[in-house]
Design a protein around this nucleic acid. Structure first.
Length: 443
RNA sequence: GUUCGGAUAGUGUAGUGGCCUAUCAUGGGGCCCUGUCGAGGCCUCGACUCGGGUUCAAAUCCCGAUCCGAACGCCA
């Protein structure tokens, strides 16, 4: 049998009135079988939706009827039949089958229920992702993820950025701080890269002017929360002849475009998830770090001093305060103390205690951080030394600053955090097909 | 890593010392049923994480292990 005969249409392609009495081939999984005695409904599910296949006992061959009602849930089938508009059927039509071919029978019992009658815990779902993904709710998340990534690419492209890919296997623990995963690279030690940061800056020296990258980042931190992954997807950009305020606008535009494209192109998926998506309004509120500390000290349960990093609790205090004041989830914290930001952050010329940096927050979570970068060789080398790092291990990076590095700025945005906040999901693992966390290495 | 909580059929659960031959739902098998859409009715199958201990008696109490969840911490 030729493969194209297995399917002529997806379930959603069928227009009941236009296609009445037409012959179609559907292919997919047996979602459910409802045997009422004299009539039997087989619900076929494909990626796009579901179709009801109806068999009337009196009108079809007895063997065919008995075979259909014994179909196992989640077996893969192909159905040849005619379209019949039918008000009583779920999508306004049903298919009266001439033949049902079992392409591959499913075992029983299933590792989890795909129909939504019985919930499964996340661990169960992740262990059996191949079945979990057949739940319309789960696959909706990944269709939306696709729309987000597509929108992000669209937005960068229309703003004149070019897409790049940089190495994920790197020679040195480039930035200190976070732990890296060591690997063996032939006879040498290497690491999985924690961020494309240094490479995208080198590309500014390379004259590409505006670049972006969407790719994996790896962090060997033993964190154990619902918002951390050890392998995540980072949306990164770097832009020459720009300062931090310029790229904050790009970030706002990226977020807004992602939201509006999802709203436009994934309405069915949003419905599955029960989400009425609100596109955020720009500009996002800009709060200085000093103002943030004042708010936390005034409204929070802890005292922070200027120069402290924000704790989880204080992020929540701040996020809730901003939401109550503005009704918006997204906001910026700008002008951070230079000391608590990475070595490449550019200090203000008139006040080097603070830097041209920002974090972009969602009510309970940091989504992005960015900065204008230091583009002067000597200044950068000093900052590396001041932070207790060895400038020699940064040669491949520092060299790029000696031969015409333009002023530039950039940010990194966590793809998964963007998605989880967009969809109001509690656990970041829900938006990753095969999440890597402290404990999970397979599937 | 710290603190707290949990582990019962394939899945999700009820069950705080004897009434457990373990509840309910879903699912599998069987029977009935012509319009279901979480179809319905009847029958049936299928489980107490592991190892010690206390007790006449442990799913239940205690100790240890393993695994899981939540908050925090860590996260240039």
């Amino acid at each position: 049998m030729l493969m194209e005969k297995l399917r002529t249409h997806h379930t959603r392609d069928i227009e009941p009135e236009e296609m009445a009495d037409k012959n179609v081939n559907l292919a997919g999984w047996v979602h459910e079988v409802r045997d009422l005695g004299g009539i039997c409904f087989v619900v076929l599910r494909d990626r796009e939706g579901m179709a009801q296949v109806t068999l009337v006992k009196k009108k079809v061959d007895a063997d065919f009827f008995n075979k259909a009602k014994k179909l196992m849930r989640e077996s893969v089938i192909s159905v040849t039949g005619t379209v019949k508009p039918e008000e009583k059927a779920p999508n306004g039509y049903e298919v009266l089958p001439d033949d049902i071919t079992v392409l591959n029978e499913s075992c029983t019992p299933l590792p989890l229920d795909t129909t939504g009658k019985v919930e499964a815990e996340m661990d169960t779902c992740l262990d059996s992702r191949y079945v979990d993904l057949r739940k319309p709710r789960t696959s909706a998340i990944f269709k939306i993820r696709h729309e987000v990534l597509k929108a992000v690419r669209d937005n960068f492209t229309r703003e004149g950025f070019i897409e790049t890919t940089t190495p994920k296997v790197v020679a040195t623990a480039t930035e200190g701080g976070t732990s890296l995963f060591p690997i063996t690279y032939f006879d040498r030690e290497a690491f999985l890269n924690q961020s494309p940061q240094l490479f995208k800056q080198i590309l500014m020296s390379g004259g590409l002017e505006k670049v972006f990258e969407i790719g994996p980042i790896f962090r060997a931190e033993e964190h154990d929360t619902r918002r951390h992954l050890n392998e995540a997807t980072s949306i990164d950009m770097e832009s020459s002849f720009s300062d931090h305020f310029d790229i904050m606008e790009t970030l706002e535009n990226t977020i807004v475009h992602a939201y509006s494209q999802v709203k436009e192109n994934a309405s069915q998926q949003l419905e599955y998830l029960g989400i009425d998506l609100e596109v955020p309004e720009t500009p996002f509120k800009r709060l200085t770090y000093s103002e943030a500390i004042d708010i936390i000290n005034q409204y929070g349960k802890e005292e922070l001093e200027w120069g402290d990093d924000l704790s989880t609790l204080s992020e929540h205090t701040l996020g809730e305060h901003v939401y109550n004041e503005t009704g918006a989830h997204h906001y910026f914290i700008i002008d951070w103390p230079t000391e608590i930001k990475p070595f490449y952050a550019m200090p203000y010329e008139d006040n080097p205690e603070i830097s041209k940096t920002f974090d972009m927050m969602h009510t309970r979570l940091e989504l992005s951080s960015g900065a204008q970068r230091i583009h002067y060789y000597d200044m950068l080398k000093n900052r590396i030394e001041n932070q207790g790092l060895d400038p020699d291990s940064f040669d491949f990076y520092l060299d790029a600053f000696g031969y015409g590095m333009p002023p530039h700025a950039g940010w990194g945005l966590g793809c998964e955090r963007l998605l989880m906040t967009m969809l109001g999901l509690e656990n970041i693992r829900e938006v990753v097909l095969f999440p890597r966390d402290r404990r999970r290495l397979s599937p």
